[in-house]
Amino acid sequence: MTSMDVSATSMDVSATISVNGRSHEIDCQPGATLLEVLRTSLGLTGTKFGCGIGYCGACTVLVDGAAAHSCCLLAATMQGREITTIEGVSGDGPDPSLGVISEAFLEAGAVQCGYCTPGFVVAIEALLAENPDPSEAEVRRYLTGNICRCSGFAAIVRAALRAGGRR
């Protein structure tokens, strides 16, 4: 079996990453994913761990405006990129500061257990930035990077279309 011992694990690396417009100096293991650093080092737990391998999309963030699975990116390689998390999309106060997409989610009943919700909101933010008024088929295709196990996606698609019409 493995004879790994703790002293053999890699040395930390340092990096500067920019999250929601603020710059952070981080020290992390070279193998630390962006997701781990967001959640553990920066305390931004709105970005969720689901599958760890780039399928479920609970960890979706924006990297320079593009949707990304933060579980599949090494944090140390994110230097010079602008990261946006759900905290940067939804704001951090009650209703008044909620974004258009978050509001549409509440109105359409697109939130159930809610664990996948931040990832979907962020992914739809990226979708609407490049395609402000998408068709239902375009929404469904774009959301191939996110899985919801509660809703059958129906209300989420309705929410995305509703938000799209408003931008």
């Binding site: 070279p30 994913t33 760890g52 391998i53 780039g54 579980c71 990116l73 090494l74 390689t77 230097q79």
Partner: peptide, 26 residues
């Protein structure tokens, strides 16, 4: 390591364990 979309999950799952990763990000 280029985009990492295969290598990072493979390493997460323990299916790849290189001693050194050379990232092309910069």
């Amino acid at each position: 390591l280029a985009g990492g979309q295969s290598l990072v999950p493979l390493m997460t799952m323990g299916l790849a364990a290189p001693a050194v990763v050379v990232s092309l990000d910069r």
